[in-house]
Write a protein that binds this DNA or RNA. Sequence first.
RNA 1: GCGCUCGUAGUGAAGUUGGCCUAUCACGCCUCCCUGUCACGGAGGAGAUCGCCGGUUCGAAUCCGGUCGAGCGCGCCA
Length: 580
Amino acid sequence: MKRTYAIDAIATIGEEITASGWVQSRRDHGGLIFIDLRDHTGILQLVITPEIAEAFRLAETLRDEFVISADGLVRSRAEGLVNDKIPTGGVEVVVSTLTILNRAEALPIQPFSDAQAGEELRLKYRYLDLRRPKMQKLLRARAEMFSQIRTFMENNEFIEVTTPILANSSPEGARDFLIPARLQPGKFYALPQAPQQFKQLLMVGGVPRYYQLAACFRDEDPRADRLYGEFYQLDAEISFIDDGEDVRRTFDPLIKQLATDFASKSLLSEDIPRISYVEAMERFGTDKPDLRFSMELVDLTDVFANTEFGVFKNADCVKAIRVAGGASLSRKQIDNFTEIAKNEGAGGLAYITYEAGVEKSPIAKFLSETELAGLRDKLQVTDGDAVFFGADRRMIVNKVLGRLRNEFATHFKLKDPNIIALCWIVDFPFYEWDETRRRVDFGHNPFSMPKGGLGSLDVATDEEKLAIVADQYDMVMNGYEICSGGVRNHNPEVLYKVFGLLGYDKDYVEAKFGAMLNAFKYGAPPHAGCAFGVDRMFMELMGESNIREVIAFPKNGSGVDLMMNSPSAVEPEQLKELGL
RNA sequence: GCGCUCGUAGUGAAGUUGGCCUAUCACGCCUCCCUGUCACGGAGGAGAUCGCCGGUUCGAAUCCGGUCGAGCGCGCCA
């Protein structure tokens, strides 16, 4: 007897096989029973006739999702009995022995219905949800992507090193998950937000090229593109390089391969553009631009330098985006976009629509003919377009128009799901202005190298500090940040200095990063690296817009695993043992 | 923490300008019939305190207030 998956039955006509799986459906004709047997390869029709009395008796009791095994002869179906809708529709198995391996109660959700259950129930009964062909496909695709990544890394001489899950709390960054240390009462481990320090220590330890498909843990509120609690990174680091471009060039082929060979998408361009942070903010209003559509921000501050229109006159900066076909937007739709603009900090949303060569707008009458002409010229306006303005402080204008650019692209369906547009955003500012605390703070990773090294840090004013550029870079895929990396700071003097500029003294730095500073005293090579958020990248490559959809057992928005009921209370004895 | 949207049989939806709702439909579930179906078909049946609490009203699934839960966004995420 030969064990067979559903799809393999096609190749075994005339043979006796054993097929196992779930009952997808039972069609009981009284004197003849058909069973659709389902496994991960598809559906196989079983035929049970009353001549085989024992099998027939069992078949009459079958219900959806019973787990069964059937022995029988594979035969071609007669003319007219072929089912063209499934690959195995030309064959069927005449059952000689039927075994019920397990029974199933009536299901709380119907995984195979067109009307899919709500997410809450799908997560609670994830093991049923995972039986759907789509989820089976996603599980296998993720394994395939991981396999291609590992092959690529190994071909490029990276070695995988696993780093501790029980690690230290990191002072910067996200909220930590803390683990009480039983053997060290009063002290705590933390789950790593990323293996950042360990991978740098591997460089000091003489590992030239490290990678890891690393679990990372952050206790921050989730989003549609951000899982709660835990996620995976392709974490990598290379020693003896001091230029981020070397890292970027290393990974360009991998990401292109995943987009084309793995996900069967088209690249917007073979060459992956490098765009500076400042340029990205000016052109797209964001540091993670979706390049599948243009609709760039155009600076009109010059055009309106001498304007009489109050809103523009009083603004530091006036910019606009041209929305092709925007003149067709209804009043109500424009109100919706205005609401979005206001949520991003805009006072309102000025706009002009162009129809039959005439401006139609609540604000056109405040603008001179020269201004209107300059505007048309700079934005290359044609009939049917609409132009939307931002006028405020430069930072707010960029943020508002950047968000609107994205919303308009969604509204006008400019985000082609078959195209992958990649870019690297480079030269992030080392420091950022923290508006709430009214002070300069780290913009990103304090471990990255300021461009220009120690010399660049010889500054005093906040303005000068904010102008320092870090050798730090992100890769962006269709508007999602999928990678972040940098040339690391392997020089203790520079590390003291970058913290010093924020008012932290040597003792603070040593207390927080003692292990790494110590290591750097004994011969640390220059090194650089990056980390890809593989779950988010996988989501976009699969054309999904919710990251939980592509993960086997995700937690919900409140950090709860609805299936396992975690987190949960623990026994008082357990707490006592931990001294809590 | 804040904003927006949502919450109706096991599941997915309709009803939400108060009364015609004794709440509709599909799928699922239960009983019976049926030898070529494949979303099998046919006959019958059970199943909902309309998330929860309170209020307005002669009357609330529907209006109001509160509360709980979910999704999305903001804050947050070096």
